[in-house]
Design a binder for these strands. Structure first.
Lengths: 201, 201
DNA sequence: ACGTAAAACTAACGATCGTTCGCTAACTTA
DNA sequence: TAAGTTAGCGAACGATCGTTAGTTTTACGT
């Protein structure tokens, strides 16, 4: 009969001295959140993808919800950086807006799992993480508010709705984008052109 | 000590001869899906809201996934009907489009839980219910394809992207709409006007 | 009035969930 | 080298999940 001796063999248990194991964990979380959505993604699946046990995950993050916040932080930080760089140059207002939109779409549709996780997990107003995430998004969207303020619009141009329309159309592209038919840059250019040029004959 | 006698009293268990108990069930499901999202909504919560036990739910629907499909069917059918009525009149192309958008936004933001459930549960490509739901959505969006075909656009007007931009912007409004600041009709009108009129000075 | 089928019930199944516990082994630092 | 810190592990907790089985109740056609 089995005794206490023949238990599990003592596998090495490599301890990673990597700069940050948390980053690998966040990436794994982003992948799972992107694939299955926050609720359906299990901490066990995330941990497995990061090469550890579910319990070990809690050495780095106190809860699953904090993982989602962490994923959002990285995603928002990246896209903010990308847009900031794109509008850093001296350009006419409309061209600056187009540059921002191009950077926005490139980030969103470029295949980065952090952005996929972002888009597929827009927080509900009842979520506990709603406030934290919403604040991050608002800060990012303020970039576009500034860009629109520089635009020479007609007097009746509702800048708020213009921002919401443009950002909304771009956000939703996540649901229909197909790399076969479209490119992020073309979508951005076309959307800005639709607003800029008269479509009515 | 408690015996087997003092268990739950035999409550009457009124049997509803209503035209369709399934409809109440679908409404309860829509409410739960809208509040918590599909995965986080439990069949027990849905059943409780419909005034029955979780097991009784399976007398009407074979699975939770079928409930989601049923909710989508009702939502799509309602909004299709609303838009069809709106564009039934004889109107110039742009006015017809605006009428369709107004009806679209009124449905989406009017507080109907079926539409809230729709918007908060856009299916992932990996979901088993993805195909069924996607087909329903495509059929609805074809309405707008027809409307855009009637529009007198410049030669370089990409009608597909125009449709995706307009529908995307309207869909996303679900995430920022506030009844205090906006009305569905105003959003629809403004969005169409942005496309129709030149914004560039 | 009776038989029957649908609808609702209670109970429970196996699975999985997020999280906690106690311990081991590795790295860091003194 | 001794002490301290901590990432990682196996196991398990209590809860909840979607679903099924078996039974009882209700409504309705004959």
């Amino acid at each position: 009969m089995t005794t206490a001796l023949d238990t599990t063999s003592p596998q090495p248990v490599k301890r990673r001295s990597r700069p940050s194991r948390r980053e690998e964990l966040l990436r794994a979380a982003a992948e799972c959140f992107a694939e299955s959505g926050y609720t359906a993604a299990s901490v066990r699946a995330i941990a497995t993808r990061a090469g550890m046990q579910a319990a070990s995950l809690y050495c780095h993050y106190p809860s699953k919800a904090d993982l989602l916040i962490g994923v959002h932080e990285i995603g928002i930080e990246r896209i903010t950086q990308a847009v900031r760089e794109a509008i850093h140059t001296e350009l006419p207002p409309w061209e600056r807006l187009e540059a921002a939109c191009t950077a926005h779409m490139r980030s969103l549709l470029g295949g980065d799992v952090f952005f996929e996780a972002l888009m597929r997990n827009v927080p509900l107003r009842t979520d506990p993480a709603y406030r934290a995430i919403r604040e991050m998004r608002a800060e990012y969207e303020a970039l576009f508010s500034d860009l629109l303020d520089d635009l020479p619009l007609p007097a009746d141009g509702d800048r708020r709705k213009l921002r919401l329309m443009l950002l909304g159309a771009m956000s939703w592209s996540f649901t229909w984008f197909s790399a076969d038919r479209d490119t992020p840059e073309d979508i951005a250019r076309t959307f800005v052109r639709f607003l800029r040029q008269p479509l009515d004959a």
